[in-house]
Design a binder for these strands. Structure first.
Lengths: 123, 123
DNA sequence: CTAAGACCTGACACTGACGTTAGATGCAAG
DNA sequence: CTTGCATCTAACGTCAGTGTCAGGTCTTAG
């Protein structure tokens, strides 16, 4: 499939796909005329990348741990494996931060709830 | 206290404090010469703002829900209250995203662990 | 073959929370 | 009073992911 179809099926913009390739996150074969061609497997790959983006990883970080995705059995991914673990831990810490912040908002909501009966009931 | 002391005690940069004021998140009194003065209460206020930033809220969003912090009893904070609830829910969704991404990383880690005995043992 | 639409590269624009710099002023200690 | 550090305003720099535009090429339907 060409880039427009992949963009539609993966739910990202064409621009983003070209950027991902520029950053070494995805690859493509080229037609004689120079247009990018993709396989069905690329849909899932893009989805995976999106999840990591959503988790706050930078494109550089994602690129560094992709060897672990490609070939989990290679020993050349020792650095990548460490980064994998570090990022997992970073996500865990971030979750704790979010839970803390959410608790703060919950306290605020409670403090305000009495004055907003209808909204409070809607929850 | 002056801005440098607040920055040190709150653990943020002087630049950030001036930016927060510019965005309407904090206020200050001024000396005759124009320098900003703060109270002890501002330390906690800045810490609270930091928590919201860490939770992914923008300065504009924080500014919009500050009325709820200032005066939980005023009815003029109806909009702010709604935003409060929306942001709480957004944080919850974000936590779910992070947990999903972390699970994906955990699966990758498992798939790679066999080939990295020492690192696996360190966990 | 031709028109239309998808695609190409390259480049600039934007957002947001700051960092950094420049040049001027405030303020406390000797 | 002076020295020197803290602070002031104003403005530009940064980073990352993406939007958008320009000007040209590929592909496919008719």
């Amino acid at each position: 499939m060409r880039i427009g179809e992949l963009a539609a099926r993966a739910g990202v913009s064409v621009r983003s796909l070209r950027y991902y390739e520029e950053q070494g996150l995805i690859t493509s074969t080229r037609s004689a005329g120079g247009q990018r061609h993709y396989t069905d497997g690329d849909i899932e790959r893009v989805a995976f990348i999106q999840r990591l983006y959503a988790a706050g990883l930078s494109s550089r970080t994602i690129a560094e741990l992709l060897p672990c995705v490609e070939s989990p059995s290679e020993q050349n991914s020792a650095e990548a494996f460490e980064r994998l673990v570090r990022e997992r831990d970073r996500i865990s810490r971030h979750v704790e931060e979010l839970v803390t912040a959410r608790a703060a908002l919950d306290r605020l909501i409670d403090a305000n709830r009495a004055h907003h009966g209808r909204l409070a009931a809607a929850r």
